[in-house]
């Protein structure tokens, strides 16, 4: 299978001496929906900046669909669409002009560019706003405008740097549907996000970057299997007299009718429910305390921090 993105021993030292990337290596396969996660300042945006030619690398190799960015940059750029974290269009230009102009930079003539712009702006619910100045759009619309702009040359690899930041949940879900659709149609997608639920539900493979190094690079499924313990919140029908205890589980009371239970993966939930039923406690609802990926992410980053401090 062709590699959509290959990064080898990539380093970046900024002018002030800060080492943002300490020799990371990464491969994203064609057709993948890939999550690149990490805390703020971990090196995600620097990595994506280098891939998209916005940041000069200090050393290392990057190739996009086999095109080395040092020797075949034009071909690499043709394969790439970028949705940056911050709004970077001219706010005084009209929506349609922004998208059509971007197409022109890829050598797409105005007629074809306008047809494609109509397609993507309609898909993203912006066609009615095509003659509005970009600054008049809402935050969510601005994000969708950047997606339409990034897709106008129909790239094979789409990089999305926090595309749903500040977007309401309904719109976020419609953007997820859209991204799933274009991924299914063959576009490889690399996503960075702080909404880990988003990464978990969309992405098949994942890398976690922290302090300029990759601390995990695996499939989402394999990563989630590393989670030893999940914490659940149980709502009870009646108030508690005392917090029940059960070997193998850590049970805490949140309030008179809510329990918080750490459930080891090996133990499962059946024994817990049997025990609560025996105590006469009826559970009315249950939910994860945090997103599973979020729990793992926090523990991995904490572990990395402790190792670095040691």
């Amino acid at each position: 299978m062709t590699t959509a993105l290959s990064i080898q021993d990539l380093r970046k030292v900024y002018g002030n001496g800060f080492e943002a990337l300490k020799g990371i290596s990464l491969e994203v396969q064609r057709g993948d929906f890939f999550a690149l996660l990490g805390p703020n300042g971990a090196g995600k945006s620097t990595t994506l900046g280098i891939v998209s030619s916005l940041v000069n690398k200090s050393s290392g190799k990057v190739s996009v669909f086999g095109h080395d960015i040092d020797t075949r940059l034009t071909q690499a750029k043709q394969c790439l669409g970028v949705v940056p974290q911050e709004f970077n269009f001219n706010p005084f230009e009209k929506v349609l002009d922004i998208v059509v102009t971007q197409a022109g930079y890829y050598g797409i003539g105005r007629k074809q560019a306008t047809e494609r712009a109509e397609h993507y702006l309609r898909k993203l619910g912006l066609w009615e706003k095509r003659n509005e100045r970009a600054r008049m759009l809402s935050g969510g619309m601005k994000r969708r405008l950047m997606i339409a702009r990034a897709l106008i040359h129909e790239p094979k690899l789409l990089i999305l740097d926090e595309p749903t930041a500040g977007v309401d949940i309904e719109l976020r879900r419609s953007m997820w549907d859209f991204l799933t659709e274009i991924n299914a149609a063959g576009t490889t997608i690399i996503l960075t996000t702080h909404y880990l639920e988003e990464a978990e539900s969309l992405c098949r493979n994942i890398a976690i970057i922290d302090h300029g190094t990759i601390i995990q690079n695996t499939s989402m499924k394999a990563l989630l299997q590393q989670l030893d313990t999940e914490t659940f919140i149980l709502d009870l029908k009646e108030d508690l007299d005392e917090v029940p205890t059960l070997d193998g589980y850590v049970i805490r009371s949140r309030d008179a009718h809510t329990l918080e239970v750490d459930v080891p993966k090996s133990a499962g939930l059946n024994a817990l429910f049997q025990h609560l039923a025996a105590k006469g406690l009826e559970v009315t609802s249950m939910r994860n305390k945090a997103n599973r990926l979020e729990e793992l992410f926090v523990s991995l980053v904490d572990k990395n921090l402790k190792q670095e401090s040691a």
């Binding site: 998209s52 030619s53 750029k77 970028v82 940056p84 269009f89 890829y106 702009r149």
Partner: peptide, 9 residues
Amino acid sequence: NIEELLVSP
């Protein structure tokens, strides 16, 4: 928005 040009070929 210089980035629009820089990411393009």
